[in-house]
Write a protein that binds this DNA or RNA. Sequence first.
RNA 1: GGCCCUAUCGUCUAGGGGUUAGGACAGCGCCUUUUCAAGGCGUUAACCCGGGUUCGAGUCCCGGUAGGGUCACCA
Length: 499
Amino acid sequence: MNTPITRFAPSPTGFMHIGGVRTALYAWMWARKHGGTFILRIEDTDKEREVPGSIEHIMETLRWLGLEWDYGPDKPGNFGSCIQSQRLDTYRAAAQQLVDKGLAYPDPYSAEEIDGFRRAAQADKRVFLFRDHRPKEFGAWDGTRPLRFKVPEVKRSHWHDAVRGELQAGEEALDDFILMKSDGYPTYNFAHIIDDQHMGITHIMRADEFISSTPKFLSLYEALGITPPVFVTLPPILREDKTKKLGKRDGAKDVLEYRAEGYLPEAMINFLALIGWNPGTPQEIFSREELIAAFDISGIHSHGGVFNEEKLRWFNKQHLSRLSNERFKEIIITPMVSSTTTAYYDTHQASHSTDAFVIDSKHADIWNKLTPIIRERIATAADFSAELNSGEYSYFFAPPKTTQIKTELLPNKSSSLTEALGYLQDARNLLAKADFSSADTLKSALWDYATEKGRGNVLWPLRYALTGKEKSPDPFTVAHIIGKEDTLARIDAALTLGL
RNA sequence: GGCCCUAUCGUCUAGGGGUUAGGACAGCGCCUUUUCAAGGCGUUAACCCGGGUUCGAGUCCCGGUAGGGUCACCA
């Protein structure tokens, strides 16, 4: 096999959804696995549908996911440009060659006339085929009329697909399709074939909606004397209700939204890789490198799959707990302490260096609590501070606004409030002498006492005093993060309110 | 409707003639009396239907059914 050259060729019509990302991912993995080339090509030949800013948005999405391209809009290499609207001369020249060879001709009909043909065919219950109306003599092509391909030979098509195997289609799949539109832009059908050849693409990864137009492509490849690349048809990603392929109009999200929600790119990639491909081993969690090593076209499925966010969350959790300290600092701590400083960090920066924080935060529970904070920060960058001070995790940054202490302190019905406050007082005395350097040292300071009195009896009121929440991380973790001073102050406040 | 593709737990899937049909997510139950986007143990749950080939079919073949795709001067 030649060194693969693959491409991802989106249209700049908005954001990228998971379907597009999955296609890009497979093309990227294949190229990387074999030391090949991955090209990002922008197919902007429909100026009507183009959405400004899409190209940058697409590039940002791919960068976030770590799918670096060797050539693209920003790195044209020797291709001149990887943006189709900047390559119009190439398509015109190729079109003219076909005209010269008698293989293309200007469409002489008006839209109304074609509509008439189509309706007549429909009334007859026949398939509408433009080639049934192919003019006897071809006029000259001046670029103002749509240019159509003259299918040289109408026949049944047979071809090989690396995933689907031997495919075929009948004669009605072949028609005189449009190569160049009257606005001077090529159609997808034409442009992608010209570009793939110019760029030396060896494998085309694309979704299964192109199966039905493959006979047209084959006919054009033949007319142009091009050996077709390897077709790698990817299975569809279906909507949760399975009634439709996932698309932008059906609730498909901008993939960058997942970033804002706290998902790690490695989790997204890992999950997407496994929808439509399987390594044949029980392994589920893959690093980027492991994916590249394990990926193979032979493991791509021919049947569709549903994108299930629950499982994505699980992948995220797995990758979260595998983050290196460096990555954790990079994506969690650094954004947290940079630009928008919080009340917590303003007052505690001195006593808790970020390094110490990272090391002590190796426990997955802390990571898990911090991630949504980051999520909120990204989503509401401007008022991050306000968000945290009033948000669900406010206890990391400010004392609970509890005004009444009563039965919430009680771990179960058998305890009394007086008893609970007694435990809390004892816990306070132990904590006053405790080593706050880690959650573990705090745990050891209290553990024997808590075990003796009943862990819930002691720890539940303590946790509540610190956070004022019915659900929160364990008290040792919280006490460590907020520090000794705040911990004792919050316990005192609770004792005061309770008595 | 024509053409094309697809079919294993609710979901992602393993398994490609002999399997107690395996794993993961979700669910459910119990445990961890620190309730978390934790952890542990256990558990429910699937070969679309009908024919054929075969000693034997989830697996191969045919037909049905269902779902998806496509029939544009969209990609």
